[in-house]
Amino acid sequence: LESRLEAAGAALQELQAAQDRPEPAARFENPVLNPQSRMLTVDIVAQVPDVHASSLDVGFCRVGEPYSLAWKLGTLSPHADGVTYTGTVTFPLDLDMGLELRLADDTVLYSSATIAPLLPLQMQSGGSGFHYSYERQELSLLDFGVHLMSPSGEETEPADGVFRLYQNGTLIHTIRETADRPMLDVDGTVQDGVTIPCAPGDRVRLTYACSDPFGLRYEFPLYEQKAMRWDDMEECPLSKTPSLAWPE
């Protein structure tokens, strides 16, 4: 019985150690864009336990493709903890690309269907307050705001930030925050909110367009709402992936 208890205790310790051991993963930090050459430089920080290698080979792949088809290879250097590996890589940036970072044994360290999570600007939160009146068939919007951050989680300020309000797919207002908040610059007129005619079934989308410090242009979808036959709006499914454009 004592022998069986000791074996069970050892197995439990091994299980606990396995659960506490971090899964292989990687993150990207300090992105630097060169809009002339359209190249992206990023630092890679990978957590890869139980390897203890003098270096770690990684491959940049299309989503779902193996390491053997990597379109770029890189090497990461180990830290003293034996788990963390870091390196810096530069590669041509296709704004429509997806990305997987793999080890030579095809362990996936990172996977994303878009390149957006690697870029200098990330949307943390944003939107506006709104109220829909079915009786007046009007939509009122106020209290606009956004919070943007870098990939490492630091708050950052965009350039040329502007809200864009679309109704049924057509841009109807361009809205900027002013120093005298909550006043807004709506198409060049300062006012405290926006009111638009809105019939049941109309769809209203709010986005935020801005540039990062390197000039890359983003348009972040914030929300899309559909007016209903009572004083309410129905939220429509919306991808949070920004549209991207190089500076002209």
Rank of each mutant, 00 (worst) to 15 (best):
V58P: 03
V58M: 04
F60V: 09
C61D: 01
C61M: 06
C61Y: 01
V63W: 05
V63K: 07
P66K: 07
Y67R: 00
Y67I: 06
S68E: 15
L69E: 13
L69W: 14
W71Y: 15
W71R: 10
K72L: 13
G74A: 13
G74P: 03
S77A: 08
S77K: 13
A80K: 12
D81P: 06
G82V: 10
G82T: 10
V83E: 02
G87D: 03
F91D: 03
F91I: 11
L93V: 15
D96F: 11
M97L: 08
L99C: 05
L101C: 08
L101E: 00
L103D: 04
D106H: 06
D106V: 08
D106L: 07
V108T: 14
V108A: 07
V108E: 04
L109Y: 02
L109C: 02
S111F: 01
S112L: 04
S112C: 10
A113S: 12
T114K: 07
A116M: 08
L119A: 04
P120S: 08
L121D: 00
Q122I: 07
M123R: 08
S128P: 11
G129L: 11
F130W: 15
E135R: 11
R136H: 14
E138W: 12
L142C: 10
G145T: 09
M149S: 12
M149D: 03
M149I: 13
M149E: 15
S150V: 08
S150W: 05
S152Y: 11
E155V: 10
E155F: 08
T156S: 07
